[in-house]
Design a protein around this nucleic acid. Structure first.
Length: 262
DNA sequence: ATGGTTGTGTTACAA
């Protein structure tokens, strides 16, 4: 059994105490991190390795940056989303670890709409769809986890009217997210939890956390071979309620061992 | 109330 979690930490250096205590307490087998906001050389590797994790880092100065932490050796590391060699933003890292292929994804926010940033978001999603198609050909278990910056449906935000016009719930964004699912991927949380009003992100402003004005934008997308082994998935709100938190909180799932009967 | 807060890294931008 493997626990796989995704968490947008909003700067690994500013969040290091929160990340270290979460790794020690929750002890995920694989952690997919986003917005590490640091170059590879400045990533606080030693402290995390001391907790028993191997690292794969695709960093960038100031913005973006993604990483994979795993208790198992990490092999076949690929940095960058295929499909545009001119794209220099560090938003995708993929590797094989613990018997699974995993990817840490920081999908572009895309605001304001319309504009170059929204065009980049949609083009990035089209590249992700193409890449997911190529991964599915191998018929292996994989998990594409990360901050998708997409509110899949109105039940995934506290006030749908407030988000009309935002890049996170534009029809073009939602349609492409559904295209990923229509390829055969399973969105782990929604597949097990039908209830609306469960969130993974709360804005820092205006007491959003205290009022539970959140949105669900952090997702775990599973290949059929991984989905067949899905045991549980949930959102861990604990880290969001601590001192100096990220504005996101971890989403995790459990994948049973291959061939296990349960 | 065209607001609010956080992080990076200079005083603007992204989220």
């Amino acid at each position: 059994m493997a626990k796989i979690a995704t968490w947008n930490v909003n700067s690994i250096r500013a969040r290091l105490p929160r990340v270290l205590e979460w790794l020690a307490e929750f002890s995920p087998d694989v952690a997919l991190l986003q917005e590490i906001k640091v170059v590879d050389e400045a990533f606080p590797a030693l402290e995390i390795e001391e907790l028993g994790y191997n690292l794969a880092i695709h960093g960038q100065k100031t913005y973006n940056g993604v990483a994979i932490l795993s208790k198992s050796p990490i092999e076949d590391i690929r940095c960058g989303l295929p499909g545009d060699d001119s794209d220099e933003q560090a938003r995708y890292i993929e590797a094989f670890t613990g018997g699974l292929r995993v990817a840490s994804i920081y999908l572009p926010n895309g605001n304001p709409v319309p504009g170059e940033k929204f065009d980049y978001k949609i083009a990035w999603m089209d590249r992700l769809i193409t890449h997911a198609e190529s991964l599915l050909v191998n018929e292996e278990a994989f998990v594409l986890g990360g901050d998708y910056n997409v509110i899949p449906a109105d039940g995934d935000c506290y006030d749908p009217a407030r988000w009309v016009g935002d890049a996170l719930c534009q029809p073009e964004s939602r349609n492409r997210f559904r295209s990923l699912l229509n390829l055969g991927l399973t969105e782990a949380f929604r597949s097990l939890h039908p209830e609306p009003g469960r969130y993974s992100y709360w804005d820092y402003t205006g007491g959003s956390w205290q009022k539970d004005f959140g949105v669900r934008i952090d997702h775990l997308l599973l290949s059929p071979q991984a989905s067949d082994r899905l045991i549980e998935c949930d959102i861990d709100k604990t880290p969001r309620g601590k001192e100096k938190p990220s504005d996101h909180t971890p989403v995790w799932c459990e994948i049973g061992d291959e061939g296990a009967v349960f």
